[in-house]
Amino acid sequence: MNGSLANAMRSDWFGPLLVTIIAVVIVGSFNPSFLSPLNIQVLLLAIAVNGLIAFSQMLIIAIGQMNLSVGAIGGLCAIVFAGMMDVWHVPAPLAALSALSIGVICGIINGVLIARTGISAFVITLATLSVYKGINLGITHAQPFYNIAESVKSVGQGAIFGVVPWLMLPTMAVGLVLWFMLNRQPIGRFILAVGGNQHAAELSGISIENTVVTAHALSGFLAALAGLLLVARLQMGQPTIGDDWLILSFAAPVIGGAILAGGHVSVPATLLGVVIVAIITQALVLFDIDPFLVQVVLGAMILAAVGANRFRESRLSRKLKRL
C-alpha cells in the first residue's frame, strides 16, 4: 500500500490532482455556487474544448517542437464547418468531415515543411498561423456564420443527466485513445523517442520525417475537432475562434509535467492541467475579479510549472550522478 502511494506521488498526475482538489475545496467553501450543477456544467463545457486544444499542443511538445498555429487551424476549420452549413447547406456530418480533413491537411503541411526544410517549428508555424488566419478572414470577411444545423446546436446544448455535456464525450474518447497510443502503440513510442533524442531515434530506425508529419497531422485533427465543438457550443461560426488558444495550449501540458524539450508528456496530467485552468478562470469570474488577471495567472502558472519541472529534472540528474 505504501509502495503504491509512493509511486502515485511520483506520477505526473499526482501534483495536478492534489492542486485540483485543494482548489475545488477552497473555491467551493468561499462560494458554494461554484459546486452548483449549472456551474459544473459550465466548467465541463470549458474542459471539453480546452482539453482538445491542450492535447493538440501536447503531441507537438512530445516531439520537442511547438505549434503556434493551433488556434489558426482550429479557427479555420470552425469557419469551414459553419460556412458549409450556412452558405452551401451541406449536411452537418459531411461538413464536419470536410473540416476535420482540412485540419489534418493543415497539420501535414506544417509537418512536411518542418521535416523537409529543417527550419524551426517556431518559424514555420508562426508563418502558417498567418496564412491560415488570413484564409479564415478571406472566407468570412470578419463576419460570423449564424445558420448552424439544429442537430449541431442540440449537441452543443445537450447534457447527460442535465449536468455532463455531450461535448465531453469526444474529449474523453480522445484522451483514452492518446493515452493508449503513447503508452501501448509503436507510433506513440516513436513520437516520444524523437522528442527524447532525435539522433538516437534515427539510429534505431525510426523515420524522423514520418513521425514529425504524423504528430502534426494528429495535432491538426485535434485542433479542428476543438473548433467544431466550439461552433456547437457557441451556436455560430465566429471568425475569432482560436485567437486566444495559444497560451492555454501550452499552459495545460506544462502544468501536467510535459518537458518542453520533448520526450515526456502525460495525458491524464495534461487533462488535469486543463481542469486547474478552468477552475481558476471560473473562480475569477465568480469573485468578480477583472478578466485581464486570467492571462496574468496563466503566465505565472506556466513559469511556476516550468520551474518545478526544471527543479525535478535537476534532482533526478544529481541522483543519477551519485549512482
Rank of each mutant, 00 (worst) to 15 (best):
H199G: 13
L260A: 15
A8E: 10
G3F: 02
A193E: 15
L100I: 07
A193W: 14
V27G: 11
V212I: 15
M301W: 00
I60D: 06
A72Q: 01
L284Y: 07
A82I: 10
N197C: 02
I109G: 09
I206D: 02
T140E: 05
V274C: 05
D290G: 13
A251T: 03
H89P: 05
P144F: 03
G138M: 14
A46I: 13
P170T: 00
R184V: 10
A82H: 11
D243S: 13
G118M: 05
V297P: 00
M172H: 08
S249H: 09
N50W: 06
S266Y: 07
R315Y: 14
G3N: 01
A62L: 07
S33Y: 15
I109P: 09
N197Q: 01
Q295K: 15
L218A: 07
Q57I: 06
G158T: 07
A149C: 07
R322G: 08
F55A: 03
L293F: 03
N210A: 15
Q41I: 09
A121G: 04
P144Y: 03
K319Y: 13
S130T: 15
S36G: 04
A226G: 03
N110Y: 01
F221W: 06
I79E: 12
R322K: 14
V80A: 00
A6S: 09
S249D: 03
I241V: 09
A54E: 14
Q65V: 11
E150Y: 10
I208S: 04
A269M: 00
R312V: 13
S151Y: 01
G51E: 10
V19C: 15
I109Y: 14
A8P: 04
V87A: 11
I148C: 07
V267G: 08
T171E: 07
S219Q: 05
G307R: 01
V104A: 05
A159C: 01
N136Q: 09
I289M: 08
L234K: 05
I139C: 02
I109L: 14
A258Q: 01
G111T: 05
A226W: 00
F34A: 08
I60Y: 07
N7P: 10
L323Q: 12
N31K: 08
G262L: 11
S120E: 11
A72P: 09
V177M: 14
L272Y: 04
I22N: 12
D290I: 13
L225A: 11
I21W: 14
M1S: 07
V25M: 13
A82Y: 07
I79G: 10
I247Y: 00
G162M: 03
K133V: 05
S314H: 15
I148T: 02
A305N: 08
T140D: 11
N110F: 01
L167G: 06
I124M: 11
H264L: 10
W13Y: 12
D288Q: 13
A304W: 13
Q143C: 12
A48Y: 00
I21K: 14
Q198T: 04
G64R: 03
L234E: 00
I139G: 02
L248R: 02
F161A: 08
D290Y: 15
P253L: 01
L320N: 07
V104Y: 06
L113A: 11
F287L: 03
R315T: 12
P239Y: 05
V164E: 09
M172N: 06
A261H: 11
V163Y: 04
V19I: 09
K153V: 12
F122Q: 03
R318Y: 13
G158P: 02
G299E: 04
I191P: 09
I119R: 10
V24W: 14
I73R: 02
L229T: 01
P239I: 00
